[in-house]
């Protein structure tokens, strides 16, 4: 559990991730803004409070793993990794350019700190299960964190994985579902309504928590609670807003991947800079 000061620090880190993600996308002029902005607070809690890792040794064998099955949210993860020192901040301006180390979708062989290659939805679930199963097999205490999109839940492979996780008692892997209620073509309920998510995961044998995915305290507490659950898998369903903190994207349907006019993100960038400054002033 984080104390007041730590919570402010994590919130400041979230503001910083949001700020740097917006700068990346503004520099590029387009990108997967929606699903990047909705996972920022979770990234902040993981990389500033919960995970064991060493930026100087990205493949440290005692680290915890973060596998982002929704590979298109790379820009937010790259901002978090750069801010934590996995690679120079200057790389953020190379997003999606030829020869970059930061491709649109996560690549374990290109980017220091990216633990798994993802981009074909559903596949990150299975590889995360494999990593976690191998740690259990070897009696190791490394943890694995998995981020799945809500639209991604359309993929059958996710539910193969859910069945496997429960049957094989994979309890060292914590799933997050970024429940931002939109996917590429619009609202998830309009494209292929997934019904009662909580009931679905419960029926698959999961320990389920549904929380505010933009509240760092709620996320941190939920991770602590999930860690205490053994012999069954845990999922934390994050109620989020797709494009949160980007006025050009928030509330827009669809907002999965959008282009920006020059200067369009300047106001948001200024807002998150001042949010960050205000939080830092409290520390």
């Amino acid at each position: 559990m984080l104390n007041e000061k730590e919570l402010i620090r994590v919130k400041a880190f979230a503001a910083q991730i949001r700020l740097e993600t917006l700068k990346e996308l503004a520099h590029l002029g387009f990108g997967h803004v929606g699903g990047a902005m909705s996972i920022v607070e979770t990234l902040a809690v993981l990389y500033d409070a919960q995970m064991k890792y060493d930026p100087k040794d990205p493949r440290w064998d005692r680290r915890d793993w973060y596998i982002q099955s929704k590979g298109h949210a790379g820009p937010a993860t790259y901002a978090a990794l750069a801010l934590k020192g996995f690679f120079p901040m200057s790389w953020l301006n190379t997003l999606n350019q030829g020869g970059t180390r930061l491709p649109s979708h996560c690549d374990r062989n290109l980017t220091p700190g990216i633990d798994m290659t993802t981009g074909s939805l559903g596949q990150g679930v299975s590889v995360a299960l494999g990593v976690a199963a191998a740690f259990k097999m070897d009696g190791k205490d490394n943890r694995v964190y998995l981020m799945v999109g809500d639209g991604e839940l359309n993929e059958g492979q996710v539910w193969e994985g859910a069945m496997f996780a429960s049957a094989k008692k994979i309890d060292n892997l914590i799933w997050f579902v970024d429940w931002n209620k939109q996917q590429l073509d619009g609202n998830t309920k309009d494209v292929c309504d997934m019904g009662d998510l909580k009931a679905k995961f419960e029926a698959f044998g999961f320990n389920v928590q549904v929380i505010n995915g933009h509240c760092v305290k709620a996320i941190d507490d939920a991770i602590d609670a999930a860690k205490a659950v053994t012999d069954k898998p845990s999922v934390i369903i994050l109620e989020t807003i797709k494009g949160y903190g980007c006025s050009a994207a928030e509330g827009v349907v669809p907002n999965h991947h959008i282009a920006f006019k020059a200067g369009q993100l300047d106001g948001d960038i200024a807002r998150w800079q001042s949010e960050y400054d205000a939080l830092m002033a409290q520390l």
Binding site: S126, V127, G130, A132, M137, Q157, F164
Partner: peptide, 15 residues
């Protein structure tokens, strides 16, 4: 569940 099996195997090989 062949798709999941292939992915689980890939994940195991990563460690």
């Amino acid at each position: 569940q062949e798709a999941n099996m292939i992915g689980v195997a890939a994940g195991m090989s990563a460690v």
